[in-house]
């Protein structure tokens, strides 16, 4: 590891923590209905939305209508994205004349964007019209993120309310998340990103003449268009000199801003934020990385404010950082250490003034090792899934870090809203375990945690694990799935495990090397994304309703304090133990074996 690299990681973490309090306090004010500095501008818009949609903002509901609203808006969003993809050939803002997307790919993408996963089996610039990107994908980036925040706010009210039937009005929380939080921040970031060179245009793709023509090998074809084969049946290739390249354009800056802030992660272009039109400079890279964790981190403070004990929010943030920081340093160290096989060949992998050193395969030279490792760790700690380097090219241990962060349930920051409500489920389990140890009914934030809450929390914890492990197991036994693997063997297993870990935890990043745009993966990953989003939201809201109806328990000498280092340690151990016990066997078959093979003598 280089000192300069560590300094950059430290700068990032300090900037993030400094922004937690101001943004967290602002969001707490927004969700408690207090007047904020944005009210003069956005208040009339908010009231107009309620009037037009017939919503009475003062009317609250119990958890069932709240959950129904969240599910309905997501289902309608998915249907809209599906229809846009299927009909894009007939719709405007399609200068490249891109055809309709296939039904299975449209299903996968619709579910992916409605669930805040943003797994992409398609290549954006070759598949989606500008209209589909803007009206379908970018809109879902806002709505799916707002749904996650709304569910968290409802759960928070479950802790704060006493003997109440209601947990809030979904439409109000949903509107305020979008209008007061996501839209202003996205607007600001989009302007800065476009100033840095991120494209924002409706112009058709441009042809550019290459400064230096390149020769590539392409398959040779017969007169009837079929591939030419040699005597052994292998495809014949021929040289082709390329003198021009196509530069894809589009309204990218506006979509990139919300894809980062909303922990969505779906790139406008195929290679996501490794593309120079999506992430052109070190400054745009820093801001995009900051945007990944900004809202999930600040929501910890919002939670503390809303439960009238900010120490609770800081404790949850501390638990996230305790897991995040060692894994970040671990990924950086693994990538900076490089490939031992290259050392044997005499390749210089040492960092110097002339090169970043380490494992630079699949990484952008303008970002280097530290910022690639930082992005990979942040994007998988949060359920973002955007990438600025190819995780498939990471060293085995460097690739294990993002995979395991997803498998921990996307609770280390996690998605906007969903990360914190996931961590709160672990907190429920942690106080339950502590209660078992001392023989006392567990409590959290003054509410007794009883059998119903523990059952629901167990569902929240177990559903993603089942989606990941069952999906992976089915895939490795299905020929239609294994033929998509470009690297058979241990690494191929890692590619499949990564894909289901990503979909089954609503992350959306890809390990690459897996041709996932096939009917099998489009359906299997689509199902994994659906269940790991909505089958978690429902029990979380059910817990919110159950907690809100309870009376507050007085704090006594026997109450376990949940803002102390002891509880942070207990929470971290609970998260890590569940993650380790569930996924260590699978990881041992993938990245751990690959690491041993890489460093073994044979």
């Amino acid at each position: 590891m280089t000192g300069q690299g560590l300094l950059q990681l430290a700068l990032y973490v300090v900037a993030l923590v400094l922004l937690v309090k101001p943004l967290g306090a602002y969001m707490a004010a927004v969700f408690q209905g207090e007047r904020t500095f944005m009210a003069p501008l956005l208040g009339p818009v908010e009231r107009l939305i309620y009037r037009l949609s017939g919503v009475d903002p003062a009317r609250e509901s119990d958890w069932k209508p709240y959950a129904f609203g969240a599910l309905l808006v997501n289902l309608l969003g998915a249907l809209a994205v599906y229809a846009l993809q299927r009909l894009q050939g007939f719709l405007p803002l399609n200068p490249q004349g891109l055809a309709a997307v296939s039904p299975d790919s449209s299903f996968n993408t619709a579910v992916s964007f409605a669930t805040n996963t943003n797994w992409q089996g398609y290549a954006g610039e070759a598949t989606m019209s500008y209209l589909t990107q803007m009206l379908g994908l970018a809109v879902q980036n806002f709505l799916s993120a707002a749904s996650g925040i709304a569910v968290l706010i409802a759960l928070t009210r479950g802790f704060t309310r006493r003997e109440a039937g209601q947990i809030g009005n979904f439409w109000v929380d949903f509107t305020r998340s979008t209008l007061y939080v996501l839209l202003p921040l996205s607007f600001l970031l989009a302007v800065v990103l476009s100033a840095q060179g991120v494209v924002q245009s409706f112009a058709p793709y441009q042809q550019a003449t290459l400064v230096e023509p390149v020769v590539i090998q392409v398959p040779a074809t017969n007169a009837d268009g079929t591939p030419q084969l040699d005597a052994s049946g292998a495809a014949v290739t021929k040289d082709q000199t390329v003198t021009e390249q196509t530069l894809p354009l589009g309204p990218a800056a506006s979509q990139v801003a919300i894809k980062q802030l909303g922990t969505n992660g779906g790139g406008f272009f195929n290679v996501n934020s490794a593309h120079p039109f999506e992430n052109p400079t070190p400054l745009s890279n820093f801001l995009e990385m900051l945007a990944i964790l900004l809202i999930p981190a600040a929501l910890c403070y919002t939670f503390g404010s809303m439960v009238n004990d900010r120490r609770q929010g800081w404790a949850l943030l501390a638990a996230m950082l305790v897991i995040f920081l060692p894994l970040l340093v671990g990924a950086f160290a693994a990538e900076q250490a490089g490939n031992p096989r290259f050392e044997a060949l005499g390749v210089d992998q040492a960092a110097s003034a002339m090169q970043p050193g380490g494992n630079m395969e699949g990484k952008e030279t303008r970002f280097g090792i530290a910022n690639s490792a930082l992005w990979a760790t942040a994007t998988t700690a949060a359920s973002n899934g955007s990438v600025n380097a190819m995780h498939d090219s990471f060293t085995p241990l460097g690739g294990l870090v993002p995979m395991w962060l997803m498998q921990l349930g996307e609770v280390v920051f996690g998605g906007v809203g969903s990360g914190l409500y996931g961590m709160l489920m672990f907190a429920v389990i942690a106080v339950f375990i502590a209660g078992l140890m001392v023989g006392r009914t567990p409590e959290y934030l003054g509410k007794k945690i009883e059998a119903y809450e523990v059952k629901m929390a167990a569902v929240v914890l177990l559903v993603p694990c089942v989606a990941v492990l069952l999906g992976t197991a089915v895939a490795v036994m299905t020929p239609a799935a294994t033929t998509s693997v470009a690297n058979p063997g241990v690494h191929g297993f890692s590619e499949i495990l990564y894909a289901f870990s990503s979909a089954g935890n609503n992350n959306g990043s890809a390990f690459a090397g897996l041709s996932a745009n096939t009917p099998f993966y489009n359906f299997a990953l689509g199902i994994a994304m659906w269940v790991s989003r909505y089958w978690l939201m429902i029990p979380v809201l059910a817990i919110a309703g159950s907690l809100a109806a309870k009376r507050a328990t007085a704090v006594t000498a026997g109450t376990l304090p949940t803002h102390t280092p002891l509880f942070v340690t207990l929470l971290v151990i609970t998260v890590l133990l569940v993650g380790a016990l569930t996924f260590l066997p699978a990881l041992a078959l993938g990245p751990i074996v690959e690491h041993l093979q890489l460093h073994g003598s044979h």
Binding site: A67, L71, P103, D104, M456, W530, V531, W535, A542
Partner: peptide, 30 residues
């Protein structure tokens, strides 16, 4: 393929609704 998409979506909606009802019923029993 459109039919398959429809069937899978309906199955997911049905299963999600079943979980919703189960959560509600379990709460009634607690």
């Amino acid at each position: 393929m459109e039919i398959l998409v429809l069937l899978v979506t309906l199955a997911l909606c049905g299963a999600t609704w079943a979980l919703f009802r189960l959560c509600d019923r379990l709460r009634g029993q607690s």
